[in-house]
Computed example of a mutant assay.
Amino acid sequence: MSDTTETPEARRQTDGQVADAVTGNWVDRLAPAWTRPYLRLSRADRPVGTWLLYLPCLWGVTLAAASTGFRWFDLWIVLGCGIGAFLMRGAGCTWNDISDRNIDGEVARTRSRPIPSGQVTLAQAVFWMVVQALAAFLILITFNMNAILMGVGSLALVAIYPFAKRFTWWPQIFLGLAFNWGAMLAWVAHTGSLTLAPVLLYLAGIAWTVFYDTIYAHQDKEDDALIGVKSTARLFAEDTPLRLRQFLLGSAALMVLAALLALLRPVGGAAAFMGLAGALGFALHMAWQLSQLDTGDNDRCLSLFRSNRDAGLIPVLCFGLAILA
């Protein structure tokens, strides 16, 4: 008699669930069946990426408000950036899957994604990407003109990122350039202009992205090596802990400088202290991640990657308290 017992992983694949999605996520449990392939294209079943795009926006608006004073429009910046992050992350991930459709089928973690698994056609994916991008644009045009121009300018970075792993060992830099743009955009949405503080905050975010996405990329390094895809995980190899420590220190130092520039002279006192506390707490969380890292354990890498939502929330909390100081 043949064994007809179906493994949980096989059942997940039969149902169309993506291999690295959070078990029991709302898309798989609650979303109408016809919407699930599109929501999976948008990574709605893996929300940490939306957080990682949204958090630099929150850094920018809270630090700007702490520096120049809270305005009621800041509440809309917070909400609008949240909706925009969900939409643009979805559009960006859809574009990534369109660009990688011939690669994802060769990688164990990604072959269950909607395009290589046949849940959606290429034309459907393109249509869905355009819908999300247009909806995000409607949010963007509620901001001031300089913020709108910055938002439009970020599209080039979004377009280039999926191809970076084909021509550079540093695709994580390109991801950081795109994912942290919101730190500057949200600052400009609040103040109307760009200064050095949000630029330093942006650079801190880029270093942070290299940190967390290198951890993430260690899940795929064997498959990447077979198909010739580059990443910092492959580049750093056994030196990963040392290299990540350097990016940790760089990210924390840049955030300290951003907080001091934004808060020390214009506000001072308790506000500057809270800004520094945010950068320190952020660094300590990354140091904890390094202490737990095992690059040979894919489950550990995924768990630590997801924990960066909490790391990024620490500066948001402290910058927010600086507004009240």
Rank of each mutant, 00 (worst) to 15 (best):
S99W: 10
P116H: 07
W95Q: 14
V130L: 12
I115K: 05
P8A: 10
F86K: 06
A21F: 05
I98C: 08
L63M: 13
N96E: 03
Q124F: 07
R89H: 05
S99K: 12
R40W: 00
C81N: 08
T94P: 12
P114G: 03
G49K: 00
G151Q: 09
T14L: 12
D104T: 05
P47W: 03
I139D: 05
W34S: 11
R89V: 02
V61H: 02
C93Y: 04
C93H: 06
L55V: 14
V126L: 14
D45A: 08
I83M: 07
P37V: 00
W34K: 04
A123Q: 12
T121R: 10
L149C: 13
D74S: 14
V78Y: 04
P56H: 08
I103C: 03
L41V: 04
G84Q: 11
F143W: 14
S42L: 01
Y38N: 09
P114F: 06
T110V: 01
G118E: 04
V126Q: 15
N102I: 01
F70L: 13
W26F: 13
R36D: 07
P8L: 13
G69S: 10
A125R: 08
P37W: 00
V107S: 08
E6K: 15
R11V: 11
S112C: 04
G105R: 03
L58H: 10
V18F: 04
G24H: 13
G60F: 14
A91K: 07
M150G: 15
A147W: 12
M129I: 05
F70S: 08
T35I: 09
W51L: 08
R71E: 12
W59T: 03
W34V: 02
T94Q: 04
G153W: 05
W76P: 09
L122R: 12
A147P: 13
A19Y: 12
G151H: 10
R109M: 08
L87E: 01
F86I: 11
A85G: 05
R40P: 00
D15I: 00
G153D: 03
N146R: 13
I83A: 11
F70D: 03
L30K: 11
F143V: 11
V131T: 06
P8E: 13
